[in-house]
């Protein structure tokens, strides 16, 4: 049925007809959502799209390259404030967004340098330091953070006769789809292979000619580029920035999303992003329970399903494919 006849066919993004079918169906459902869904849901999905970009970046770093970073809140803040200031100076939205990513990537390179020497918990502490340092700089510098009033960012105007919520929805859907495609392309190329090799065995990766310095730094840069874009999109959505939006809790949310969604999985990143956005919605009457749910979720996932939601999804798919035979 699905006989592969050439190498080219095997390297295609969507290999089976039915996978493509479901993906297109899902995309259609998402595109048509504003017509049948409540506005509240459109907004929530917009948040999920934005978040999933950052989670993919974090997953490229933690899941694929095996380097840990607890400094994501820092990159998020850098991206958001870069975007905010550029838009205030009158730069076009897309250029500002690109710059937000690039500034975050630049700092990602800097933070990546300790990763050449440090591993595991030591790297976690070093990057954690970066995240907190960025936060402190923004808190204490009125020029950067916009002072007590915060930084107001001009919002996206309503385009093409859509309402503003829907404009945001489509804009972020487009970007999230774009970044998801790029993630898939990156990980299936020599780049992704080198990243996974570094995670699985850095000594033999190096002995096979993978330059650890370049590829570890590249992983940090790409990951923080994604996070910077997330920050920029966040700023654009909220139209208002203050340093307190980028505390350590933000790093934790990204980390939870990666673990819950599944390490080294792009689909998992999106599922994880949905989890992290939806939990506060479900517990909107008991906000103080959210960190508890996150903590319990991590423990349960690590014990029962180390591959996260994407691992569970693979098992369900296998079950359905085999049904009624077990």
């Amino acid at each position: 049925m699905d006989l592969i006849e050439s190498y080219k066919e095997e390297l295609r993004l969507v290999r089976k007809f039915w996978t493509g079918f479901w993906i297109i169906l899902l995309l259609f459902a998402l595109i048509l959502l504003p017509w049948y869904g409540k506005e509240h849901w459109v907004y929530i999905l917009t948040l999920i799209f934005i978040f999933s970009i950052g989670v993919q970046g974090q997953n490229l770093l933690i899941g694929y390259t095996g380097q840990i970073s607890f400094g994501q809140a820092g990159f998020l803040a850098l991206g958001a404030f870069t975007f905010g200031h550029l838009v205030r100076m009158g730069a076009p939205v897309l250029i500002s967004l690109l710059c937000a990513g690039l500034v975050a990537a630049l700092f990602g390179l800097l933070v990546g340098f300790p990763s050449l020497r440090l591993k595991g918990p030591y790297l976690a502490i070093a990057t954690l330091g970066f995240g907190i340092a960025v936060y402190q700089v923004f808190v204490n510098s009125e020029i950067l953070s916009g002072g007590r009033m915060g930084l107001t960012v001009q919002k996206l105007p309503a385009l093409f006769g859509l309402s503003q919520v829907n404009t945001y929805y489509y804009f972020n859907l487009l970007l999230a789809t774009l970044f998801t495609l790029v993630s898939y392309n990156l990980i299936s190329s020599f780049l992704g292979r080198a990243f996974i090799a570094i995670r699985d065995n850095d000594i033999s990766a190096e002995a096979m000619g993978v330059n650890l310095t370049i590829y570890k730094l590249l992983a940090f840069a790409i990951s923080s580029f994604y996070t910077g874009i997330q920050g920029g999109l966040y700023a654009l959505l909220l139209g208002y920035l203050e340093p307190n939006m980028f505390t350590f809790l933000e790093t934790i949310s990204l980390f939870v999303a990666v673990i819950v969604g599944g390490l080294a999985s792009v689909e998992g990143s999106i599922l994880g992003a949905a989890f992290v956005i939806l939990v506060p919605q479900v517990f909107s009457n008991a906000k103080h329970l959210v960190p508890v749910v996150f903590g319990v979720a991590i423990i349960l996932i690590l014990i029962f399903e180390p591959l996260g939601l994407s691992g569970r999804w693979l098992k369900i798919r296998l079950y359905l494919r085999m049904w009624p035979f077990r």
Partner: peptide, 14 residues
């Protein structure tokens, strides 16, 4: 010292 989570093919391609 193989890349244990990769397929044989990916190991060779690396």
């Amino acid at each position: 010292r193989l890349f244990m989570n990769m397929s044989t093919l990916d190991n060779l391609l690396l």
